[in-house]
Design a protein around this nucleic acid. Structure first.
Lengths: 212, 212
DNA sequence: CCAAAAGTGTTAAAGCTACACCCATGG
DNA sequence: CCATGGGTGTAGCTTTAACACTTTTGG
């Protein structure tokens, strides 16, 4: 037992699944709020940088590394009966690259962001803020790279934008914007997928965060 | 002595003085980096919300309350030899309303942001990030209200924008934008100030943060 | 009447939105 | 040949940037 304040990290992990934006939740195994769905997180032990604790948590839950991870904010409203701060992060991962922990008593699960039950603590509001940040950043950064595999069609990319923004976009305008703002480039290959014209595949010019 | 991690707050306090953006610095009174200029801050004791600790620090240093205060980010790079996190904030205050602590051995001082010596820890980078955030928010919020008194001329407002952005703006376009975006409104009074046409005074429609 | 800052409009360029038709493929 | 999604261009509108002269005042 320590006399000092707690420092915890909490991670909002987003992925696109079934064409919808989903967030990864775990069951709380301890009190308070035991048994409720909650964001994954854990105590910071002080033996590594805070960002690495968050990145480690992300990898533990999803098996995926090297994706998009950004700090959101820090709050001292922990509701755990002792002083402490929680540092919230949000991450964007490619669902296809994720391997969830299985076999656990309480495996993590994906939940649609647009239809969330009340979660432990103020986790609903943390997710809302993560979503707001992600929406804003779509407009002026390339962060969507976190949600997509190396190669994708422009339609895949548009679906990703639509899932996050929660509204439909015009196909022609979307394509023009993406091709002119320089965040993606064409591979010269096509993907054949059904009884129709095959789509050109693209990749992100950079898989590091870039501002437009 | 506590065995747990430290939690500290650090505040970047900006004001416009001599038509330049300046930041409030204090002398470090303890090791490490004793005697160097540094951002004001202090330990969080866990008996109040984190934001209130930052707000209190702001008031202690400037005598001013109810201005603009926003959380920036949290880092664990403290360089103090024991584990801990620092939560950085930035604040915008009206220099005319500030009464600095005096009589202290090491009174706080305003320093021009565009000409800073190397400060303690990574404080230069914290200030740079605060400035970047403030610049971005000028474009789509009314946060400039924090830097100005209740009544001001459009020219005062433009000077504030220019000091933060670090570049000159076109007077006619600036005026048009400010009058059309709805963040300020005319008082019907004028300020007479020298051998020239008196300027109309304006006020902010809201002195709470508003997004455009 | 002069110096100094306040106040005011227009034009061109760029960017954004809305919108409809042809293309390539598999079955 | 047909159903399906991929791919393309244009016209109107809004927004932004550039730019110069007249007004009001104090001295």
């Amino acid at each position: 037992m320590s006399a000092g304040p707690l420092v915890a990290t909490v991670v909002v992990i987003f992925a696109i699944i079934d064409e919808a934006l989903q967030v990864l939740l775990v069951h709380r195994t301890g009190d308070p709020e035991r048994g409720k769905w909650a964001l994954p997180g854990g105590l910071w032990r002080g033996d590594e940088p805070l960002d690495r604790t968050a990145a480690r948590k992300l990898t533990e839950e999803t098996g995926a590394a090297d994706l998009y991870l950004e700090q959101l904010f820090t709050t001292s409203d922990l509701d755990v009966g002792q002083p402490g701060v929680a540092v919230a992060y949000f991450a964007l991962v490619d669902a296809a690259a994720v391997r969830l922990r299985i076999g656990d008593q309480w495996p993590p699960e994906w939940h649609r962001v647009d239809d969330l039950e009340p979660l432990a603590f103020d986790n609903n509001s943390v997710i809302a803020q993560a979503l707001e940040r992600a929406r804003a950043k779509l407009d002026y950064t390339n962060i969507a790279y976190g949600l997509l595999p190396d190669e994708f069609t422009i339609r895949d990319l548009q679906g990703t934008y639509e899932a996050i923004l929660g509204r439909d976009l015009d196909r022609r305008n979307f394509r023009k914007r993406m091709l002119s703002n320089g965040i993606i480039e064409s591979t010269e290959t096509r993907r054949h997928e059904g009884a129709h014209r095959p789509a050109l595949l693209y990749r992100f010019v950079s898989r590091e965060p870039v501002f437009l």
